[in-house]
């Protein structure tokens, strides 16, 4: 593994949900070829952290450093258009990211036979697979995934784990919040519980709950 600058470095990060701090003092790095799994109870701030890293909301404190245009974000929702076919959905994202090739992604996520089906006729698990196939067509090295395995069966979880492993082998990196064991033995686990934000009276950062745009 070439020793290069980390693909993602987070230092002393504090994130807020609805104006209230949920995590603080968080720091980690993500190297090429590394998978980092975020663990923690519901409400600890996994989704909030991932949204902050994706740039959808500002951090309360701390720094996030990564090279530009390296991250692909996958949220709880798959962002599929139900009246478009699997191919059309995937081709759209391939065009947005300027990659254009969707064949490999269709094969990798076992969607080839569904290619001409409109997305509204897919099952929940099939939609999820299509959502994950979107990551493959982005061509971005850093995957930021929020609960990627929701509604996937065991075989699809294995399929997905294989896709992540192939991505890591190509020098990519993945950061995911998940509750189940993916079978990725090489993944590092980061427990978020120790970074839970303290109340302001115990020295935590004061939130901005009264801010109009919180």
């Amino acid at each position: 593994m070439p020793q290069a600058a980390p693909m993602l470095r987070v230092e002393n990060l504090a994130v807020t949900r609805g104006g209230l701090p949920v995590l603080e003092g968080l720091g980690f790095t993500l190297e090429a070829g590394q998978a980092l799994v975020l663990r923690g109870p519901n409400g600890i701030g996994k989704t909030t952290l991932l949204r902050t890293l994706a740039g959808l909301q500002p951090a309360l404190a701390g720094t996030i450093s990564m090279p530009p245009e390296t991250m692909a974000y996958a949220a709880h929702a798959d962002g599929l258009k139900s009246t478009l076919t699997v191919t059309e959905n995937l081709s759209f994202w391939a065009a947005v990211y300027g990659t254009g090739a969707i064949d490999a992604a269709l094969d990798r996520m076992n969607l080839r036979q569904l290619a001409d089906r409109p997305a509204h006729s897919l099952s929940a698990g099939q939609k999820r697979r299509l959502g994950l196939a979107r990551l493959l067509v982005t061509g971005r090295p850093v995957w930021v995934l929020d609960e990627p395995t929701v509604s996937l069966d065991a075989a699809s979880v294995a399929l997905f784990a294989g896709a992540v492993r192939a991505h890591l082998a190509q020098g990519g990196a993945a950061l995911m919040a998940t509750h189940i064991d993916l079978g990725l033995s090489e993944a590092t686990v980061l427990d978020l519980a120790p970074f839970k934000a303290r109340p302001p009276e115990l020295g935590g950062i004061a939130g901005s709950f009264d801010e109009a745009f919180a």
Binding site: A77, Y97, G98
Partner: peptide, 16 residues
């Protein structure tokens, strides 16, 4: 519609 199905989040993080 894009907000409801999550596309808007993804578009906001896309290169456009």
């Amino acid at each position: 519609l894009d907000f409801e199905d999550g596309s808007l989040d993804l578009l906001a993080t896309a290169p456009i």
